[in-house]
Design a protein around this nucleic acid. Structure first.
Lengths: 142, 142
DNA sequence: TAATATTGTATTGTACACAATTTAATTTTG
DNA sequence: CAAAATTAAATTGTGTACAATACAATATTA
């Protein structure tokens, strides 16, 4: 058995596991909002930027249209967002919050703190972690 | 706009992005083996442990039967693993490597180094990262 | 030992995630 | 200005991921 191929020697695996566990940790917190974790991320950027088209959301969240189109349709079905084709450039679909979607921000406010408590990290560790991850992200992109 | 809900203030998001980018970074390297990243993880544990049942693989990789059953069937269809129901306890399905699956380890040997180069991390940073991630993983599990 | 509980896997349903392709609209350029 | 190139979404197909459920086999216990 090649030592280098042992699971415990893979850097990728803890990251992969952690990402899944984070989604799982969000699930109960997002239940009251009736959204999934990726849907919550879309709401986050819409609360921040008010109005974005599909491409812009994809750039912010690193998601492509094959993921976003059905996800946004589900948010639309829940009356959380509006999907409107731009009249200036009809290729573009503008996504905006409905009143209901915008008002959900109030209920979401308590979520980040709850997650941070679950993570049990010190501020120092959180800064280190973000720094290292961003370093990888900046170089890994082909 | 609540500052705490800004995307850039979320710890979860870089982890989520990084996990996806790692899968993407593996894709071209795994193409020659004709496996996906989760399939590669299954092969990793099989190369290490030789023989595991479905439950054991799930515990090692934090995956449930709903994910593993079809994934293992795909590996079986590629003639990389055998699925055999245990004669001692017929509920158990033992997963073992075929000759082809075992021999793939040779070709995989070069992959971890290539990934590590893509990450551009120093050994020190890699240790820090693993440490912090494991700290979160140990506490986040409900 | 018969009734009950637990265990291990499979199945079903919903929701990402991304490659590849398609379609329509806009821009570029010859 | 028309042909070609580019752009933005949507669609299709494959493959995870997980909750919930089903089901059969084994273990427990009254």
């Amino acid at each position: 058995m090649k030592e280098i191929l042992k699971l415990s020697n893979q850097l990728c695996f803890p990251i992969y596991s952690l990402s899944k566990e984070i989604s799982n940790a969000y699930r109960p917190l997002l239940e009251s909002l009736d959204v999934t974790y990726p849907q919550y991320l879309v709401l986050l950027v819409l609360w921040e930027y008010k109005k974005l088209n599909v491409r812009e959301i994809g750039e912010l969240l690193h998601l492509d249209s094959g993921t976003l189109t059905p996800l946004l349709k589900r948010l639309e079905a829940k009356s959380l967002v509006n999907r409107n084709r731009s009249t200036i450039d009809e290729r573009i679909v503008e996504i905006s919050l409905t009143h209901k979607g915008a008002s959900l921000e109030e209920s979401a406010e308590c979520i980040p703190k709850q997650l941070k408590e679950k993570s049990s990290l010190t501020d120092q560790e959180q800064i280190q972690l973000t720094h290292i991850i961003n370093k990888i992200l900046n170089t890994i992109k082909t």
